[in-house]
Nucleic acid binder design. Sequence first.
DNA 1: GGTATATTGTCAGGCAGCCTGACACACTTG
DNA 2: CAAGTGTGTCAGGCTGCCTGACAATATACC
Lengths: 148, 148
Amino acid sequence: MNASGARSLPQLLGDARRWFEDALTQALAEAGAAPVSPTQLGLFAVLDEQGTTVAELARRMGVTRQTAHQAAHGLIGLGLLEQVADPSSARQRLIRRTAEGRRTHQQAELLLARLEHALARRIGADTLTALRTALEADWGPPSPGRPG
Amino acid sequence: MNASGARSLPQLLGDARRWFEDALTQALAEAGAAPVSPTQLGLFAVLDEQGTTVAELARRMGVTRQTAHQAAHGLIGLGLLEQVADPSSARQRLIRRTAEGRRTHQQAELLLARLEHALARRIGADTLTALRTALEADWGPPSPGRPG
DNA sequence: GGTATATTGTCAGGCAGCCTGACACACTTG
DNA sequence: CAAGTGTGTCAGGCTGCCTGACAATATACC
């Protein structure tokens, strides 16, 4: 008797989420890179080249300022991002990639792409495409408590 | 400018997970039932009628004893489960549903099924089926740190 | 100018879900 | 009786998300 059987969709989704997270972490570790989480990768993805404020990052990521702040500061702690003053306004600071951040970002994206590739080989490219399609569909307004 | 654009699979998976969680919580609240999480529903799903030990629950759920313990005690705190002594062995205690637990369990399962139904209507039944199929596929051994 | 309001960044704290480590206890085995 | 194994539990940690609160700054309006 094991964990197979009637797994509900939410559980399966969570498992898949963690599969990616664990696999990415492992791949990064093997590559000798800093442990960047999928969420932090998402932050990188919405970062402007010239720098972006935390509030703007939050908007683009669809989370609260606090969450974006936390994600950004994790990366700042790793030396992958830096926070610089915005010349145009003293109340806001720009989040920017450091040189190492640029490198790690690219590497992590590459590893994630490889992960997807490996997964496609395993479960079938069409199945993976179907997965992405389903996830990108409009799931409607279920969560009134979330920003965005 | 919003959160659309290049969302990675892990992010999409997490979003979907939270969509279900939020929607279920909301539906339960509207029905006046106790706030049961998807994980706790999973616990209910692997519970034997006559009662099950925490360690066995953990095995069936594919998590550690500690995690199962925590999920179970959340439900005990809500009055939906109870812990009784196992007559066959003094070192283990059986986790069992209370009368209210039975009711809430059924109600939550029903609401979750309705959620899926509503989702199927929205994104297409075939798409939803494809999603489930993809998630239930064998994703391989990515996470060496997980039990099961 | 001066005051009201909005925006920004941040700290504090909370919750779910998962983990490892550690420990006491009870049963089993030698 | 001692050793080993399984069980339940406490403590603590991590990620990812949230709300609440606050000071500092910018902007709008009078």
